[in-house]
Amino acid sequence: MMKITRSWREQKIMLKRRFSNLCDEDFEFEESQKESMLDNLALKLNKTRLELQKLFAELQTY
């Protein structure tokens, strides 16, 4: 299980700095649509869901 040390806001900022094709709208979701938002992020970044999970885990180490 991944330990979350950064806020969602911090993670969004870090991802937007790293991937210039991301915008605020890419991170918007209703609680019931979180999985859909993550699928859309993975698609936009051309990554699998596993790669996306690893990316979020990596953000926790900065």
Rank of each mutant, 00 (worst) to 15 (best):
E58S: 09
L59H: 01
S7Q: 11
S7K: 02
L55Y: 00
F27T: 01
L15C: 01
T61H: 08
F19Y: 07
E28A: 11
Q60F: 07
K47L: 09
F27Q: 07
R9I: 10
A57R: 09
S32W: 05
K54V: 07
S32C: 06
M37G: 03
M14N: 11
R18I: 08
S7N: 12
N40Q: 13
I4E: 12
T48D: 13
E30W: 10
T48Q: 12
E31S: 12
E35N: 14
E25A: 08
K16H: 05
I13C: 04
S36E: 12
Q11P: 02
L52S: 05
L55A: 00
L52W: 10
S32P: 04
L43N: 07
E25F: 05
A42T: 03
R17A: 13
K12V: 03
K16G: 02
L55R: 04
L43R: 00
E58D: 13
D24G: 06
S36L: 12
Q53R: 12
E31P: 15
K44E: 05
K12A: 08
Q60S: 09
F29Y: 08
M1L: 07
K34E: 12
K47D: 04
D24I: 01
Q60K: 10
L55H: 01
K12M: 14
L43A: 02
I4F: 09
R17C: 11
I13M: 00
E58G: 04
W8I: 09
E28H: 08
L22S: 04
I4V: 13
E30T: 11
K3A: 09
R18W: 06
F27V: 05
F29D: 04
D24Q: 07
F19K: 03
A57C: 03
D24M: 03
A57M: 06
K16F: 05
E28I: 13
M14D: 10
I13A: 07
L38M: 13
E51R: 03
L45A: 02
L59I: 05
M1C: 03
N46L: 01
E28V: 12
K34P: 07
S7P: 04
L59E: 01
L41S: 09
K34S: 06
L45T: 03
L15W: 01
E28P: 00
E35G: 15
S32D: 08
R6F: 03
I13R: 01
K3P: 05
R17Q: 13
E58Q: 03
A42P: 08
Q11F: 00
L55P: 07
Q11D: 05
C23R: 06
A42E: 04
C23A: 02
T61R: 08
D39L: 15
L50F: 07
I4R: 05
Q11R: 00
Q11C: 08
F29L: 05
A57H: 07
W8S: 11
K34W: 08
K12W: 00
N21G: 08
L55I: 04
R9M: 14
L52A: 02
E31C: 15
Q53L: 11
Q60N: 13
K54Q: 15
N46I: 04
D26H: 01
K16Y: 01
T61Q: 13
L22Y: 05
N46T: 02
K47I: 04
L52P: 12
L41H: 05
L43Q: 04
F29C: 14
M2R: 14
K3Y: 11
L50K: 04
L38N: 14
F56M: 10
E30G: 12
Q11Y: 00
L15R: 03
R18L: 09
L50E: 10
L59F: 03
L59G: 02
N40S: 15
E25L: 01
